[in-house]
Amino acid sequence: MTNDVLLQILAAFLFCTGMLVVLLRRDTIMILMGIELLLNAANLSLVAFSKSAGMIEGQLQVFFVITIAAAESAVGLSILVNLYRNFGSIKTQSATTLKG
C-alpha cells in the first residue's frame, strides 16, 4: 500500500464521515461543519491524485475550492444567525415555514 492509496482511502473515509454528519445531525451548524468536512475530503483527494500524476491543476482547483468554502461558510453562518433570530432555535425541525 503506497502513500497514494492511503491518502485516497483517508479522503473517502472523511467524505463518508462528513456525509453522515450532514445526514444524522439535527443542528444546522453541525450540517455546515459536515459540508466543510466534505469539501476538505474532496480537496485531499484532488491534491493526492494531482500530486501522484505529476500535475498542478488539482492544487489550483483546491485553491479555488478553499476560497468558495470561505464564502459559503460566511453566507451560511449569517443565514443561521437570521434563522436563530426568527425561530429562536437552529434545529432543522424548527424551521418549518419559509416566511421568516
Partner: peptide, 16 residues
Amino acid sequence: ISLALLIAVVAAVVLA
C-alpha cells in the same frame, strides 16, 4: 473568484 468573495462578504453583512 475574488468577485465572488466580495459578493459573499456583502451578502453576509446584509443578511446578518
